[in-house]
């Protein structure tokens, strides 16, 4: 592989720079995991404290929209995985196209999520937004609070991911990212996307499938 790689200050060769970038991303995702870990801990403690009410509250969520969104997100991760493979093979246009497709699926996810929130507002189930709110009891209120915190924190990460992938695709399409020299950029963005996907894979059963 002979490619133009910009070496930054502390690094002495390309492999070292690449590995450092990857390791940095993995460590960062470790911190993200601990961040969501706090939310998961709260969800599980609440379930342990109030098992019956928790299950009852979970049954009010729109499980089909959640399931559909899980499918959408997994498909987008597939597109990102393909994009990384094509980026390694220096197929820049294909890689950029797949990244756009993944970002598009991310937007579909966010759209479905917004639709779900709207339904919940009409049902009086979404805290802060539903007036009047219509909770059967305090635990249901607490459950919906947790649902809102967890899914909106996830949606913020999704939004960052969509911006990241779109920007990257745009740069690749313009030729601003020489491939496969700068493939680390695609790999690291891909890692972030997969991570956000995996968080949803855990959030979905913890909230929707607790019925």
């Amino acid at each position: 592989m002979s490619e133009r790689i910009e070496l930054h200050e502390p690094f002495s060769d390309a492999a070292q720079q690449h590995e450092a970038g990857m390791l940095g991303m993995y460590v960062f995702l470790g911190t993200e995991m601990m961040l969501f870990g706090g939310v998961f801990a709260v969800i599980f403690v609440t379930r342990a404290l109030h098992p019956a009410e928790f299950v009852a509250a979970s049954q009010k969520l729109h499980v089909f929209i959640g399931a559909l969104n899980t499918g959408v997100l997994l498909t987008s991760s597939f597109a990102v995985a393909l994009a990384v493979a094509f980026a390694r093979a220096a197929r820049a246009r294909l890689a950029a196209g797949l990244l756009v497709a993944a970002a598009g699926l991310g937007l579909v996810f966010l759209g479905l999520k917004a639709f779900e929130y709207t339904l919940e507002i009409h049902e009086g189930l979404l805290p802060l937004f539903s007036r009047p709110a219509n909770f059967s009891g305090p635990v249901e209120h607490l459950f919906m609070n947790l649902y809102l915190v967890a899914t909106s924190l996830h949606a913020i990460h999704m939004t960052i991911g969509v911006v990241l992938l779109t920007g990257l695709a745009w740069r690749i399409a313009r030729g601003g990212v020489p491939l496969p020299g700068r493939v680390a950029l695609v790999e690291n963005s891909g890692l972030y996307w997969h991570f956000v996907d995996v968080i949803w894979v855990f959030l979905y059963p913890a909230l929707y499938l607790a019925r």
Binding site: M33, L35, G38, T46, L128, V149
Partner: peptide, 25 residues
């Protein structure tokens, strides 16, 4: 630093949300 600090971040965010919006956790 990398494993513990994010837990504090999310905990403080929950306290702030509890104070502002009555989260209830």
């Amino acid at each position: 630093l990398v494993l513990a600090t994010p837990v504090l971040s999310v905990t403080l965010a929950l306290v702030a949300a509890e104070r502002l919006f009555g989260l209830g956790i």
